[in-house]
Design a protein around this nucleic acid. Sequence first.
DNA 1: GGTGAAAGCATCTGGTG
DNA 2: CACCAGATGCTTTCACC
Lengths: 145, 145
Amino acid sequence: MQLDKLHYAILNELQSDARSSNAAIGRKIGLTAPAVAERIKKLQEAGIIKGFSAVVDYSKLEYIHNVLIAVKLQPNMIASFLKETEKIEGIVKMIHTTGEYCFFLHLFLKSVEELTVLLDRFGKFGDTITYSILSVPIDYKPIHF
Amino acid sequence: MQLDKLHYAILNELQSDARSSNAAIGRKIGLTAPAVAERIKKLQEAGIIKGFSAVVDYSKLEYIHNVLIAVKLQPNMIASFLKETEKIEGIVKMIHTTGEYCFFLHLFLKSVEELTVLLDRFGKFGDTITYSILSVPIDYKPIHF
DNA sequence: GGTGAAAGCATCTGGTG
DNA sequence: CACCAGATGCTTTCACC
């Protein structure tokens, strides 16, 4: 897909405020509402826009424990580990990297007991290191074009 | 702020589709559009909803390098490090943890040259480990209530 | 939290370069 | 092919109950 300046302007607007109307975006960038709607649809079909989401502060709700877990998997465990993590609520991000600790998980929990249960479940797959999160200075920060 | 089942239902809807109309949400959960609008406004004012954002696949754009950097800061460097990272484009998440490597950054870059420049900038603050990201199996996954 | 009217918006259709 | 313009049905917004 070939993107022009207007596509990038639309992405910037939608990253700042996904609930902004097509008409309002169009006014800012010089297009009519149907043209904006069409471009957004194409961006979604191309997979460039994966979705629109409310950014929720889970720590203000019952998810008061916020941890980072690094996991060093045993060989040939990737597929089953991925399957296991799919079932777990509270993982907001999981990164698969090169290097010694090959998975990093950012997750929110309601209690310390949940963490114990979770680490027990992960024990089957390999070694873990759990870091308590003191703060998340940058979260869901959009890249502007 | 006291939340009831309807608040959580609204959060679920908005996490799945932030562009869903108040009227459509209202139909699903049994409220009128003005009531939904009012509740969303209150959730934003309470800081529970931090914003609404398009989830963009940066790797489909020019941001083709995707890395995780762990940073072990020298003492008394936190404030200046935070200030430095504010200026850097491409950091989508930065987590401050307890433990040996006390900052973890997930970031997108346009080229390997940018990574060199960045690691040089971080050198002033402490030691770094850079992990290449093979995949991000879970990204911006909402927690449903 | 609902209701009703007015303004605004999304969406479809047909037409233009 | 992307866009615009006009028409229709929904939606948002505000007053008020």
